[in-house]
């Protein structure tokens, strides 16, 4: 014995390696038996009967001493969960609205760009037309004084309106831009 060393883990592992497969096979065949499942069911049934009895007794005791049972506390927790669910539903609806708002804002932005482009085009058209009218007017020969109609003594009210409207129109177009 003096020449031997004692390796507890080595012995343990060796024992395990030598016996495990034999035990495993025998246990495996037992576990596969329908009788084992039946036994398991019986144990389960007895445990649940005992547990049911304990639950019932605990509940009636808690009722007598005016202490809320687990079910009663759980029902309060359920109410809180229900409120939270409603909040989550509201949050979801807000998300949907936010998404819709985002898409509307996008559409409005696109619309603005399109209107701006149209405005610029209109300005160009007006400019060209004005130039054309001016060119025409320059090309037409100046009429003789006889042909010029007599000016009214008082200025036409339209003339004032026209002069007042011109800068206003310009301002509108600038705002649009």
């Amino acid at each position: 014995m003096t020449n031997q060393t004692f390796d507890a883990f080595g012995i343990w592992k060796e024992m395990y390696d030598r016996t495990e497969s034999a035990f495993r096979d025998s246990i495996q065949s037992t576990l596969e038996q329908p009788a084992f499942a039946e036994g398991l069911g019986q144990v389960q049934k007895q445990y649940l009967q005992y547990q049911g009895l304990v639950n019932g007794m605990t509940e009636s005791y808690l009722k007598q001493v005016n202490v809320p049972s687990r079910d009663e506390i759980a029902s309060i927790a359920s109410l809180v969960i229900n409120v939270e669910s409603k909040l989550i539903d509201l949050e979801d609806q807000l998300d949907v609205q936010e998404d819709a708002h985002d898409s509307h804002a996008k559409e409005i932005k696109q619309l603005k760009t399109t209107v701006n482009r149209l405005d610029k085009k209109l300005d160009t058209v007006i400019e060209l037309l004005t130039k054309q009218v001016e060119a025409k007017a320059a090309a037409t020969p100046t009429p003789t004084p006889k042909a010029v109609p007599q000016k009214p003594l008082t200025p036409a009210p339209n003339a004032q309106v026209k002069t007042a409207a011109t800068p206003a129109a310009k301002n509108t177009s600038q705002t649009k831009k």
Partner: peptide, 21 residues
């Protein structure tokens, strides 16, 4: 596998288990 044997309707006390626990 073995679960098919153990969880079969005839022996496994499913409803009692959920109702009790």
């Amino acid at each position: 596998g073995l679960y098919t044997n153990w969880l079969n309707k005839d022996t496994f006390q499913l409803d009692k288990m959920v109702d009790t626990l």
